[in-house]
């Protein structure tokens, strides 16, 4: 009985270890193949278009409204102290250090990460991944490496667009709508915002890009059991990626700033 109990209590840890091992191995392999010829440049460009260009609208809208609501909320609070001038700085710091990278990564996970998992899972189910192997081609090189590189490159770009649009949104609400002094708004941003705030945020976005792409590819690659399996893999991939991004965000932030 004790043995059964021990086995049952150990099992969840084994599952997690197995998952981490699988994801780690896939990451290492995809990275290694990224440096090996022939480089699949056209595959990378195609993924950059899908992950980056096609996510633009979603990211812009998310960034814009986040900046707008930040200005609205913070001006409500700071008006009580007569310190509305800091609203610009608050919006800029929150966007660049935190909300730009994290919200962009979560939105891209929902839009592009889920599609990665669904596509690879369908390719697994319909034997397209086996077809690559039979053709003596490495599926990781053709399917995972381009997605990982494209995510790594595009997420910082998307995050910086989100930062920029967010600050514009904050400006529109703060200055144009709520009548905060324009000079104070801009001046505070210039004073407070450091270059480090921006690039540390962008480094986080790049790391989130790798986390998202590797987890989503792993889940797609290892899906089992037909259409139901594809759906299950997609859900698991989005949940696992989002949670990992949030945890990694805390860890990275505490290390960086």
């Amino acid at each position: 009985m004790f043995r059964g109990l021990a086995r049952d209590s150990v099992r969840p840890f084994l599952v997690v270890l197995d998952l981490l091992g699988g994801i780690g191995t896939l990451f290492a392999r995809a990275l290694y193949l990224g440096f090996k010829r022939p480089f699949k440049v056209n595959y990378i460009f195609k993924q950059m278009e899908f992950i980056g260009v096609n996510s633009l609208l979603v990211v812009v809208i998310t960034g814009l409204f986040t900046g707008m609501v930040l200005a609205l909320q913070s001006s409500y609070g700071f008006r009580k102290f007569g310190a509305e001038g800091v609203v610009g700085a608050i919006v800029a710091l929150s966007m660049t250090r935190e909300l730009g990278p994290v919200l962009t990564s979560l939105m891209v996970t929902g839009r592009a990460g889920s599609a990665m998992t669904a596509e690879l899972a369908t390719m697994r189910v319909t034997e397209q991944i086996d077809a690559l192997r039979v053709m003596a081609l490495d599926p990781v090189k053709y399917l995972v490496t381009p997605r990982m590189i494209a995510s790594f490159l595009m997420l910082p770009v998307l995050a910086s667009i989100s930062n920029f649009v967010g600050i514009i949104g904050g400006y529109l609400v703060g200055v144009k709508l709520l009548g905060i002094n324009e000079g104070a708004f801009v001046n505070r941003i210039e004073k407070v915002l450091q270059f480090q705030d921006i690039y540390n945020g962008l480094i986080k976005a790049a790391v989130f890009g790798i986390i998202m792409s590797v987890i989503c590819c792993y889940k797609g690659f290892n899906s089992r059991g037909g259409a139901e399996g594809v759906g299950k893999a997609t859900t698991e991939a989005v949940v696992a990626s989002s949670l990992t991004i949030l945890v990694a965000d805390y860890v990275l932030t505490s290390l960086m700033f």
């Binding site: 319909t126 397209q128 086996d130 077809a131 039979v134």
Partner: peptide, 16 residues
């Protein structure tokens, strides 16, 4: 070795 082979899969496994 796989270079010597071609394979037709059950559902053809064309890259969609």
């Amino acid at each position: 070795v796989r270079g010597k082979f071609g394979m037709l899969f059950q559902e053809a496994a064309l890259f969609d």
